[in-house]
Design a protein around this nucleic acid. Structure first.
Lengths: 334, 334
DNA sequence: TTGAAAGCGCTAACAG
DNA sequence: CTGTTAGCGCTTTCAA
């Protein structure tokens, strides 16, 4: 593998000149530049990133940690990263076995300048790393004071969704809330709060038996199918007439199971998801969901992180985007 | 940020000793080791990975490139990587705008030792990079002679699926095949071949009007919904009685649309997917699909890649795993 | 506009 | 069991 000295030699210049040609920003005589570029090409030279990283002692790479890598968010992240001259590396960090130490090692080892958490619900990991490194959360946000976050207002989204459904005549609300070993994530708590407030405003309440806490399901969705079947089997005056889900796939399951059981959706039961997914548009009826301006959120989160890396003393910002209520067939009669 | 010399100084030893303590494999007096570790801890030292990488001129990191990062494959990859002492970074490479140059730059820049392609259908990118670097393909495999691949036998999977359906009495098969600007990927061609062979064996054929080529859909699934509606609207003697899909989400759409239109699934039409997804188990009826031993495939692919990196002269292996026909409600009456 | 020297942090090779 | 030397490839700094 050719090094910068090989290129320099072949071009008859010093390594410094090669460096200047490749990195730009310096005056180099045109004929020299051409000779250098020719040498680069003929030797198929590629700068060694360890050498560069070691010398510059700063990394133009960020880690994106999470598990469900939502395409449009990644698009936004890559867009900003490109504009700012940063590289993006994804690190698979599923909620229950995220490895904060490994992330930290990479940053402290100089391979990355900061961490962008994507829909990360492991709040301990976030807390730990936020104390050590430039960190931005995008999507779900742990309640860590003074953190940089890019979110939507989950409480308000839940409030507005429920308000709409109440106005459509729904009365017996169920909320299937995500639960984790350490208790529900703060995102879920905020949604629950929004639901309760919206109901209270109409003289209604979220009955305890209709608040279902369900572990974050990943492989086996049987508990969700069972729950939906139980809904279907309830006598009409007890059965919820509106069910709000944290996890999108569970809402999809619910729509399918209820219809299979002969219940009308949305006629007898309205189903909605606080999260959204392309699948929502292909099931029948289509699924009402809370959408987010993903691409813009990704772009903003990336800009924020770079800002934080290059300017660590500046105070953190919390950017809240407007959510989008996607009212669809599972709640609204055609 | 403390360097190895700070640690050495604090522990009253040479940097070399610190290095040996941290990297293991050398005899170090126990009392010395303890002093070093104490210094490491007190200074909160973390080795600089650029320094190490530069010196060792080899990277114990691999790139995993793809877009739909399937959880169990990643699990398998991480498992093998951990056992072999490798790090894994994911690089988001969506089919139509993968950036082979960026991948190559990382490898040639010394940041990674090889590339593991995950369900990558951009065959040009694969061809290019395979010629330059250690590469393993996992999942869909481009037809590049002499490549390392971990796959299932797509043709055989399609053959067996169709054979089963024919035996259940299906006659008018449709295949909704993935298409790309440069023509269908080889995976699709293999499946098509399997379907044709299976039909021919029973004196049937895949009629041209029932071979539907559909661009790889990502955001807007309207064409798939339209297609399903067209199926539903056909007179019974023309309508396919079995539809095989390349893209899982399109099959989900089909099941939902057909049922919405009042057609019985699987009574009137059987629907199956050559790909699988957790969603298949929650829709009703559940979706028949070709499953794969994902975790084992990920493990094997990672082992293969490391083997290739450390032993570039050895010939490539093509490992074929046994697929799993998951016959479910969308084809088999309960 | 170009070059020389120095050193980033680490470990291989050798010496003791 | 431990230390010394040297150098990986690059760019910062200083000099011309």
């Amino acid at each position: 593998m050719a090094s910068i000295r090989d290129v320099a030699q072949q071009a008859g210049v010093s390594p410094m000149t090669v460096s200047r040609v490749l990195n730009g920003g310096y005056p180099v005589k045109d004929s020299t530049r051409r000779r250098v570029l020719a040498a680069v090409k003929s030797l198929d030279y590629e700068p060694n990133l360890h050498g560069r990283g070691l010398r510059q002692a700063r990394s133009r790479t960020v880690l994106v940690a999470g598990s469900g890598f939502v395409e449009p968010i990644l698009d936004g992240i890559h867009k900003s990263a490109g504009e700012l001259g940063y590289e993006v590396v994804l690190v698979h960090s599923p909620p229950q076995r995220a490895d904060p130490a490994a992330l930290s090692r990479r940053v402290r080892g100089g391979l990355a300048g900061g961490i962008l958490f994507l829909n990360m619900i492991d709040e301990d990991a976030i807390r730990t790393l936020t104390a050590l490194h430039p960190v931005v959360q995008c999507g779900s946000a742990a309640d860590v004071p003074g953190t940089c976050t890019v979110t939507v207002d989950e409480e308000r989204a839940a409030y507005e969704l429920v308000e709409r459904l109440v106005r459509q005549g729904r009365r017996r609300f169920a909320y299937v809330a995500m639960d984790l070993p350490g208790g529900p994530p703060s995102m879920t708590r905020r949604r629950e709060q929004g639901i309760r407030r919206a109901l209270a405003a109409q003289g209604l309440a979220l009955e305890p038996e209709r608040l279902v806490r369900m572990t974050h399901l990943r492989d086996d969705y049987a508990p969700a199918l069972d729950l939906a079947r139980r809904f279907a089997a309830m006598p009409e005056d007890v059965r919820p007439d509106a069910v709000v889900y944290d996890q999108n796939i569970l809402a999809v399951a619910c729509v399918n199971v209820l219809r299979e059981a002969g219940l009308a959706v949305p006629g007898s039961v309205a189903v909605a998801s606080m999260d959204d997914n392309p699948i929502d548009l292909v099931i029948q009826p289509t699924l009402t969901a809370v959408g987010r301006p993903y691409k813009a959120m990704g772009e903003e989160a990336m800009r924020m992180l770079v800002d934080r890396i290059e300017n660590p003393e500046a105070p953190c910002r919390q950017v809240v985007f407007r959510h989008i209520l996607e009212m669809r067939g599972s709640t609204d009669p055609a």
